[in-house]
Protein backbone atom coordinates (compact mmCIF):
# COMPACT_ATOMS: atom_id res chain seq x y z
CA UNK A 1 0.00 0.00 0.00
CA UNK A 2 1.84 3.03 -1.31
CA UNK A 3 -0.90 5.52 -0.38
CA UNK A 4 -0.37 7.84 2.56
CA UNK A 5 -2.41 6.90 5.61
CA UNK A 6 -3.62 10.50 5.82
CA UNK A 7 -5.69 10.18 2.63
CA UNK A 8 -6.84 6.56 2.80
CA UNK A 9 -8.43 4.33 5.37
CA UNK A 10 -7.76 0.64 4.69
CA UNK A 11 -10.25 -1.75 6.27
CA UNK A 12 -8.72 -5.23 6.66
CA UNK A 13 -11.35 -7.90 7.18
CA UNK A 14 -11.55 -11.59 6.46
CA UNK A 15 -14.88 -13.23 7.07
CA UNK A 16 -15.62 -16.38 5.08
CA UNK A 17 -19.23 -17.27 4.24
CA UNK A 18 -20.57 -20.78 4.57
CA UNK A 19 -23.46 -21.65 2.25
CA UNK A 20 -25.48 -24.89 2.20
CA UNK A 21 -25.61 -26.38 -1.29
CA UNK A 22 -28.95 -28.14 -0.70
CA UNK A 23 -29.98 -31.78 -1.15
CA UNK A 24 -29.97 -31.76 -4.96
CA UNK A 25 -26.38 -30.55 -5.30
CA UNK A 26 -25.30 -32.73 -2.36
CA UNK A 27 -26.57 -35.80 -4.23
CA UNK A 28 -24.89 -34.54 -7.42
CA UNK A 29 -21.51 -34.12 -5.69
CA UNK A 30 -21.78 -37.59 -4.09
CA UNK A 31 -22.48 -38.98 -7.58
CA UNK A 32 -19.35 -37.31 -8.97
CA UNK A 33 -17.36 -39.06 -6.23
CA UNK A 34 -18.60 -42.40 -7.64
CA UNK A 35 -17.78 -41.37 -11.22
CA UNK A 36 -21.41 -40.68 -12.14
CA UNK A 37 -23.02 -37.48 -13.46
CA UNK A 38 -26.57 -37.20 -12.20
CA UNK A 39 -29.28 -35.05 -13.74
CA UNK A 40 -32.90 -34.51 -12.85
CA UNK A 41 -35.93 -34.91 -15.10
CA UNK A 42 -38.98 -32.65 -15.23
CA UNK A 43 -42.23 -34.64 -14.93
CA UNK A 44 -43.92 -32.21 -17.32
CA UNK A 45 -41.59 -31.28 -20.19
CA UNK A 46 -39.32 -34.28 -19.70
CA UNK A 47 -36.16 -32.21 -19.98
CA UNK A 48 -33.12 -33.38 -18.02
CA UNK A 49 -31.13 -30.70 -16.22
CA UNK A 50 -27.53 -30.99 -15.06
CA UNK A 51 -26.55 -30.12 -12.42
CA UNK A 52 -29.89 -31.00 -10.82
CA UNK A 53 -32.19 -28.39 -9.33
CA UNK A 54 -35.49 -28.57 -7.50
CA UNK A 55 -37.80 -26.53 -9.73
CA UNK A 56 -38.45 -26.50 -13.47
CA UNK A 57 -39.28 -22.81 -13.74
CA UNK A 58 -40.85 -23.06 -17.19
CA UNK A 59 -43.29 -25.80 -16.12
CA UNK A 60 -43.59 -24.72 -12.47
CA UNK A 61 -43.04 -28.32 -11.33
CA UNK A 62 -40.90 -29.93 -8.63
CA UNK A 63 -38.41 -32.40 -10.15
CA UNK A 64 -37.68 -35.70 -8.39
CA UNK A 65 -36.67 -38.25 -11.05
CA UNK A 66 -32.90 -38.80 -11.03
CA UNK A 67 -31.21 -39.75 -14.31
CA UNK A 68 -27.59 -40.64 -15.01
CA UNK A 69 -26.17 -38.74 -18.00
CA UNK A 70 -22.88 -38.69 -19.93
CA UNK A 71 -20.03 -39.14 -19.20
CA UNK A 72 -19.71 -38.40 -22.94
CA UNK A 73 -21.02 -35.22 -24.46
CA UNK A 74 -20.73 -32.64 -27.24
CA UNK A 75 -19.12 -29.20 -27.14
CA UNK A 76 -21.81 -26.59 -27.88
CA UNK A 77 -19.87 -23.39 -27.18
CA UNK A 78 -16.30 -22.61 -26.14
CA UNK A 79 -13.76 -19.97 -25.27
CA UNK A 80 -10.01 -19.93 -24.77
CA UNK A 81 -9.05 -18.34 -21.46
CA UNK A 82 -5.81 -16.33 -21.50
CA UNK A 83 -6.17 -15.10 -17.90
CA UNK A 84 -7.67 -16.36 -14.69
CA UNK A 85 -8.75 -14.77 -11.44
CA UNK A 86 -7.00 -15.75 -8.26
CA UNK A 87 -8.89 -14.38 -5.27
CA UNK A 88 -9.85 -11.32 -7.30
CA UNK A 89 -6.39 -10.78 -8.86
CA UNK A 90 -6.01 -11.28 -12.61
CA UNK A 91 -3.19 -13.66 -13.58
CA UNK A 92 -2.01 -14.14 -17.15
CA UNK A 93 -1.74 -17.84 -18.02
CA UNK A 94 1.41 -19.17 -19.69
CA UNK A 95 -0.70 -21.84 -21.38
CA UNK A 96 -4.27 -20.83 -22.29
CA UNK A 97 -7.07 -22.98 -20.85
CA UNK A 98 -9.80 -24.38 -23.05
CA UNK A 99 -13.25 -23.83 -21.58
CA UNK A 100 -16.44 -25.25 -23.03
CA UNK A 101 -20.17 -25.51 -22.52
CA UNK A 102 -20.92 -29.19 -22.96
CA UNK A 103 -24.20 -30.95 -23.65
CA UNK A 104 -23.83 -34.33 -21.94
CA UNK A 105 -25.51 -37.28 -23.63
CA UNK A 106 -29.01 -37.56 -22.14
CA UNK A 107 -29.08 -33.97 -20.83
CA UNK A 108 -30.91 -30.89 -22.15
CA UNK A 109 -28.81 -28.26 -20.35
CA UNK A 110 -25.16 -27.29 -20.68
CA UNK A 111 -22.35 -27.90 -18.21
CA UNK A 112 -19.29 -25.63 -18.02
CA UNK A 113 -15.96 -27.42 -17.95
CA UNK A 114 -12.30 -27.38 -18.90
CA UNK A 115 -11.15 -29.43 -21.89
CA UNK A 116 -7.59 -30.82 -21.89
CA UNK A 117 -5.54 -32.83 -24.36
CA UNK A 118 -6.40 -30.95 -27.55
CA UNK A 119 -5.06 -27.97 -29.50
CA UNK A 120 -7.19 -24.78 -29.21
CA UNK A 121 -7.85 -24.65 -32.96
CA UNK A 122 -9.41 -28.14 -32.84
CA UNK A 123 -11.85 -27.15 -30.10
CA UNK A 124 -14.74 -26.46 -32.45
CA UNK A 125 -18.45 -26.84 -31.98
CA UNK A 126 -19.50 -30.45 -32.15
CA UNK A 127 -16.32 -31.92 -30.63
CA UNK A 128 -17.09 -35.11 -28.71
CA UNK A 129 -15.63 -35.21 -25.19
CA UNK A 130 -15.66 -37.45 -22.14
CA UNK A 131 -15.57 -36.54 -18.43
CA UNK A 132 -12.48 -37.39 -16.37
CA UNK A 133 -13.01 -37.78 -12.62
CA UNK A 134 -10.60 -37.07 -9.81
CA UNK A 135 -9.14 -40.14 -8.12
CA UNK A 136 -9.40 -40.32 -5.17
CA UNK A 137 -12.57 -38.25 -4.93
CA UNK A 138 -12.53 -35.15 -2.73
CA UNK A 139 -16.26 -34.59 -2.09
CA UNK A 140 -16.44 -31.43 -4.16
CA UNK A 141 -17.59 -30.18 -7.56
CA UNK A 142 -14.01 -30.50 -8.76
CA UNK A 143 -14.35 -34.31 -8.57
CA UNK A 144 -15.45 -33.82 -12.19
CA UNK A 145 -11.94 -32.65 -12.97
CA UNK A 146 -11.95 -31.97 -16.73
CA UNK A 147 -13.06 -33.29 -20.13
CA UNK A 148 -10.88 -34.94 -22.78
CA UNK A 149 -11.57 -35.74 -26.43
CA UNK A 150 -13.52 -38.98 -26.83
CA UNK A 151 -11.22 -41.76 -27.92
Amino acid sequence: MSESVVTNVVVPMNFPYNYRVGQYIETYIRGLGEGKILGIKCPSCGKVMVPPRKICGVCDRVMEEWVEVGPEGTVENYTVGHVRLNLGEVERLDTPVLLALIKLDGADSLLAGEVRGIEPEKLGDGLRVRAVFKDPAGDSLSDLEYFEPEK
Binding site: V21, G22, G81, R84, L85, L141, S142
Partner: peptide, 26 residues
Protein backbone atom coordinates in the same frame (compact mmCIF):
# COMPACT_ATOMS: atom_id res chain seq x y z
CA UNK B 1 -21.07 -15.66 -4.13
CA UNK B 2 -24.33 -14.94 -2.27
CA UNK B 3 -25.92 -16.46 -5.39
CA UNK B 4 -23.58 -19.36 -4.99
CA UNK B 5 -26.42 -21.79 -5.39
CA UNK B 6 -26.85 -20.49 -8.93
CA UNK B 7 -23.12 -20.94 -9.49
CA UNK B 8 -23.15 -24.41 -8.03
CA UNK B 9 -26.26 -25.18 -10.03
CA UNK B 10 -24.17 -24.46 -13.08
CA UNK B 11 -21.65 -27.04 -11.89
CA UNK B 12 -18.96 -24.38 -11.52
CA UNK B 13 -16.19 -25.31 -9.18
CA UNK B 14 -15.44 -22.13 -7.24
CA UNK B 15 -12.21 -23.46 -5.67
CA UNK B 16 -11.35 -20.28 -3.82
CA UNK B 17 -12.03 -18.10 -6.84
CA UNK B 18 -9.62 -20.13 -8.99
CA UNK B 19 -12.10 -22.62 -10.41
CA UNK B 20 -13.82 -22.95 -13.77
CA UNK B 21 -15.73 -19.72 -13.23
CA UNK B 22 -12.52 -17.76 -12.70
CA UNK B 23 -10.69 -19.03 -15.74
CA UNK B 24 -11.17 -16.72 -18.67
CA UNK B 25 -11.20 -13.78 -16.30
CA UNK B 26 -14.53 -13.67 -14.51
Amino acid sequence: IPEVIAMVQSGMDLAGGRGVGAMGGG
